[in-house]
Nucleic acid binder design. Structure first.
Lengths: 67, 67
DNA sequence: ACCTAATGTTAAGTATCCTTTACAATGAAG
DNA sequence: CTTCATTGTAAAGGATACTTAACATTAGGT
């Protein structure tokens, strides 16, 4: 349902999962799970992630199948 | 921490809490709680809400105190 | 071959979201 | 004043997010 580009955008900044986790106040496991698509983060964490990756939230997270 | 303009934007569309809830697949109570700031929705629900309100997610939800 | 950083992946537990049900408060319309 | 739609609120429970801890795998550097 929810898709994301966290892994791609994180790599673009040369952040490790740990780096990004620290930047947004989450664990590396949480980042890993989100990248894998295992679960959808809260909007709070999603906002922090998109801010850390310097893009709009919709460029990181979007609903699969929307037009 | 998380602030939002759901109530204001919902009124602008003449949606009741029930209307918006049905549009996004949530209950009116959930919408009410979000408007009240009682909790931060999932990014999935937040995306659906911003889509129903026809604005970018960041125009509906934002982190208090960011520059 | 060894060491280390990074990632993958599980399991268990805590925290938070979200629903269902229920009842109260408000306000507009008759 | 009554009726109805809307909203506020709260408790209980189910679903999901997130953490901590642990161990495995991969890749690079020495």
């Amino acid at each position: 349902m929810l898709r994301n580009r966290v892994k791609e955008l994180r790599a673009r900044h040369d952040f490790t999962q740990s780096d990004l986790g620290k930047l947004v106040g989450a664990t590396r496991q949480t980042i890993g799970m989100i990248e894998k698509g295992d679960y959808a983060p809260s909007v709070l964490l999603a906002l922090k992630i998109s801010k850390a990756l310097r893009v709009n939230l919709e460029e990181v997270f979007w609903i699969e199948g929307e037009e």
